[in-house]
C-alpha cells in the first residue's frame, strides 16, 4: 500500500489509543476514589436536597455581612493587580527574547515559578508574615499574578514591529529610549488589556482566599456552609454572581475599547 493511503489509518489508530487510555484512566480514578455507580445515582438527589434549603435567600444578611466582604474581595483583587502590573511591566520588557536574549531566559524562569504557585498556597505563607486579613491576600494575589502578566506581556513585546526600534537606535537613541518610544507605545494597550483580564481572574481568586483567613467573601461562604445557614450562603452566592458578572461586563467592554483604539 502506498504511504499516502496509510496516513489516515495511522491517525485514527492514534486517536483510538488516546481515547482508550483516557477512558481507562477515568475508570481507574473512579474506582480509586470509590465513586461507584450507586454513589453517582445518589448525587443529584443530595445536591437537589441541599439546594432546596437555599431558598429563600437571606438578603438582609447579604447587605449587612456579605456585601462588605465582597467589597473587600474587590479591594484585594485591585491592590493585587496593581502590585502585579507595576512589577510585571519592566519584567515583560526584559523578558522579551527578541530584545534581551540573555536576560529573557532568566526572567522567564522566574515567571514560570511564580505562575506555578496557586494564590492560596502563597497566602498560607503570607498570613503568618503580615497577619490574618486582606493585606496578606493582596500580596499573595500580586505575587502570583506577576508570573502570568510577565509571560503574557513578554509575548506581546515579542510580537511587535521592530522597525521603529531600529529607527530610534539609528537616530542615536539608547536602548532604554527605544523601549520608551518604540516599544511601550506599541504594547501598552494590549498589556493594559491583560491587566484588566487578570483583574477579572483575581476577583475570583481573592474570593476564595478567605478560606485560609486572608480576607474577602470566601471565609463568609465557608462559615455559612459550615454552620448550615443555607439561606445566608445563598445570599453569598447570589451577590457574588451578580457583582462578578457586572465587573466582567464592564472590564470586558473597556478591554475591547482599549484594543480597538
Amino acid at each position: 500500500m502506498s504511504p499516502v493511503a496509510l496516513q489516515p489509518q495511522r491517525r485514527i489508530g492514534w486517536a483510538t489509543w488516546a481515547t482508550f487510555i483516557i477512558a481507562a484512566l477515568f475508570a481507574w480514578s473512579l474506582i480509586a476514589i470509590e465513586f461507584s455507580p450507586g454513589r453517582m445515582i445518589e448525587v443529584p438527589g443530595q445536591v437537589a436536597r441541599v439546594l432546596s434549603f437555599f431558598w429563600p435567600a437571606d438578603m438582609a444578611y447579604g447587605w449587612d455581612a456579605v456585601l462588605p466582604a465582597i467589597v473587600e474581595s474587590i479591594q484585594i483583587a485591585w491592590v493585587g493587580t496593581i502590585i502585579a502590573a507595576i512589577l510585571s511591566l519592566p519584567l515583560a520588557l526584559f523578558g522579551a527574547r527578541t530584545l534581551f536574549p540573555r536576560i529573557a531566559r532568566f526572567v522567564k524562569l522566574i515567571s514560570a515559578t511564580a505562575r506555578a504557585f496557586p494564590e492560596i498556597l502563597l497566602a498560607i505563607y503570607f498570613v503568618p508574615i503580615v497577619g490574618l486579613g486582606a493585606f496578606a491576600g493582596a500580596l499573595a494575589i500580586g505575587i502570583s499574578s506577576v508570573g502570568m502578566l510577565t509571560k503574557l506581556g513578554a509575548e506581546v513585546v515579542e510580537s511587535i514591529d521592530f522597525g521603529p526600534v531600529e529607527a530610534v537606535e539609528a537616530s542615536g537613541g539608547s536602548r532604554i529610549l527605544a523601549l520608551r518610544y518604540a516599544v511601550v507605545p506599541q504594547v501598552l494597550p494590549e498589556i493594559v488589556a491583560h491587566w484588566l483580564f487578570r483583574f477579572e481572574l483575581n476577583i475570583r481568586a481573592s474570593a476564595v482566599l478567605g478560606v485560609v483567613g486572608a480576607g474577602g467573601v470566601g471565609g463568609v461562604l465557608l462559615n455559612t456552609l459550615r454552620y448550615r445557614h443555607f439561606e445566608k450562603a445563598a445570599a453569598v452566592l447570589i451577590l457574588t454572581i451578580i457583582v462578578v458578572l457586572i465587573i466582567d461586563m464592564v472590564s470586558g467592554e473597556i478591554r475591547r475599547r482599549i484594543i480597538r483604539s
Binding site: G163, A167, V168, G173, L177, Y181, P185, Q186, P189
Partner: peptide, 22 residues
C-alpha cells in the same frame, strides 16, 4: 526606511521628536 518605521500609535509630532532623542 523603505517601510517608514513609524510608531503608528503615536502622533506625527512624537514620531518626529524621536529624531531629537539624542
Amino acid at each position: 526606511f523603505q517601510d517608514f518605521r513609524l510608531v503608528k500609535r503615536l502622533s506625527v509630532m512624537s514620531n518626529v521628536l524621536i529624531g531629537r532623542l539624542a
